[in-house]
């Protein structure tokens, strides 16, 4: 059997024909309605939000949105949210809390937008507030990394009760190109960096950061509807479990379980101090 390298996974995760958030919304939700705007500055096309029926109940969906063509990609800023994208996510999250609706997020971005205007409008502030809003959310939350999980820009929508990853999805602290440029002083060594950084879904599962890897019937760009259906089935199962857990423990305690999960991540040595 051919070995799939980390760099292969990066290419698959970034494939333009891979299904994106709006494809999942259209296929998995009955009668969905897209919701727009952060109510502060403008609507960020790199982050989409929708409300719709999933199975028997209403859910809120949030996700990064890449384009299926170069033109759409330019319009969507290649899925790189600006501060208004994170503030839109926060607003919609509060809406979900008000009506007690579970939230599903789809993660798929190379990074948060690194532009001048994004800095002016407080990109770091938007991301930290979004992280805090998700960590504090008073409703069950579920994240699926469907493609590229690029650094803080991806993380801001991913800190949920459950973190699932598609088989060919990645999650990294920096792009392999950036990592290679910084540590190997040569962006062309990205394939080597991709391997070294351990960014595949399989590695994240091994680290205990991801909860489950969802197999792709064929690489998602070759079988979009099969992949989406599979994701739908897995989401249904996790959502059912989460709703029971939230019902059993109550929101305050369920939220503490989420906090404990993120509080525990990390590895270190500890010696007694004399």
């Amino acid at each position: 059997m051919m070995q799939i390298t980390a760099w292969d996974r990066v290419q698959l995760a970034r494939h333009q024909a891979r299904p994106h958030t709006l494809d999942y919304i259209t296929e998995l939700l009955e009668e969905p309605r897209e919701l727009h705007g952060d109510r502060l500055f403008r609507d960020d096309p790199a982050v989409v939000a929708a409300i719709g029926r999933f199975g028997t109940r209403s859910v809120i969906v949030l996700g990064h949105q890449k384009g299926a063509s170069t033109t759409e990609n330019v319009a969507r800023n290649f899925g790189m949210p600006r501060p208004e994208g994170y503030r839109k996510a926060i607003r919609i999250l509060h809406l979900a809390e008000k009506f007690g609706l579970p939230v599903i997020t789809f993660i798929d971005t190379p990074a948060a937008d690194p532009g001048l205007e994004s800095e002016e409008r407080g990109q770091a502030w938007a991301i930290s507030s979004c992280l805090q809003a998700f960590l504090r959310a008073q409703v069950p939350t579920l994240a699926v990394v469907i493609g590229e999980g690029g650094s803080g820009g991806a993380l801001a929508l991913a800190v949920c009760d459950r973190l699932l990853m598609l088989e060919n999805a990645i999650f990294a602290v920096a792009s392999p190109e950036a990592c290679a440029a910084i540590l190997w002083r040569d962006a062309a060594r990205a394939p080597e960096a991709a391997e070294t950084m351990r960014i595949t879904a399989q590695e994240l599962l091994r680290f205990g950061i991801a909860d489950e890897v969802i197999p792709e019937p064929a690489p998602a760009h070759l079988d979009a509807s099969g992949t989406i259906r599979r994701v739908g089935q897995v989401l249904e199962r996790h959502l059912e479990e989460l709703l029971q857990l939230w019902h059993k423990h109550g929101p305050a305690h369920a939220r503490r379980l989420r906090w404990a999960r993120y509080r525990a991540i990390g590895l270190w040595h500890e010696e007694p101090v004399t």
């Binding site: 803080g152 990294a172 602290v173 540590l183 351990r198």
Partner: peptide, 22 residues
């Protein structure tokens, strides 16, 4: 920035620190 050498573990220190200040 993040400590590249610890990869995704570094990334997930972001939510950890935000949880801690609760």
């Amino acid at each position: 920035g993040a400590r590249m050498h610890e990869g995704v573990f570094s990334l997930f220190q972001l939510p950890k620190t935000i949880v801690a200040v609760e």
